[in-house]
Design a protein around this nucleic acid. Structure first.
Lengths: 110, 110
DNA sequence: GGCATAAGTTCTATTATGTAGAACAAATCG
DNA sequence: CGATTTGTTCTACATAATAGAACTTATGCC
């Protein structure tokens, strides 16, 4: 297998879906991402990322029912797959290894 | 300022330079990266990344003296700049925020 | 009914990062 | 001086990040 890699936004989006659980759909993921990273991602950035995650098999999606309020059209709900859960565990382990034993950073004096 | 962002390999390479200190040069960074990530990066990938980090101002480099052993030509030594140290602190904080309160991942039953 | 408006998603493009490997350079050894 | 070793640069392409317009489907209201 050609080693699954996740970009940093992909990982953040995957985590957002994991956290949101049943409420994981495009706009909600975007809000979560904005809050958690402090950055403002365009809606297009979010959806293309979710699409890639689905292509990679770490997410799956289904179309929900329309919502009973103004503009409440049906949402595309995302959920983590088994491969996705594994990818998250791997990412967690890799991240820990990357930062392990790293105290503070001292820049060279100019 | 157009918000400095670092890709995942860029961050890993920056951390490698930080760790290696005075021994931070291309091949050593590559070795460190290989050990720490378990992945085998091509030498071209490493140097391109270091170059980009320098362009972004988080690393600076100087040419060292030739080494007194076979094939020991002069090395290009890299060091973290003040902006680099800040970037690392930011990355650390962002990473922590991203994973905060994240226990285990439960995939949806198929 | 039909238009304004709101929530959502899809499409189209472009730039930034990741990645490989050949080519090139400079040292020592025999 | 040719083989070998360490090290760096160059060239090219693949993948991921990112934006925003366009499109779709609801409800609210006159």
């Amino acid at each position: 297998m050609p080693t699954l890699t996740l970009g940093s936004l992909e990982l953040a989006a995957l985590l957002a879906v994991a956290r949101l659980g049943n409420d994981a759909y495009g706009l909600a993921v975007r809000r979560d991402l904005t809050e958690r990273t402090g950055r403002d991602y365009s809606i297009g950035a979010v959806y293309t990322t979710l699409q890639r995650l689905e292509d990679k098999g770490v997410l799956k999606s289904r179309t929900g029912e329309p919502q009973p309020f103004r503009g409440g059209r049906s949402r595309r709900h995302y959920a983590i797959t088994g491969a996705g859960a594994r990818a998250l565990r791997d990412a967690e382990r890799n991240t820990a290894a990357l930062w392990a034993g790293f105290g503070s950073v001292r820049p060279e004096p100019a």
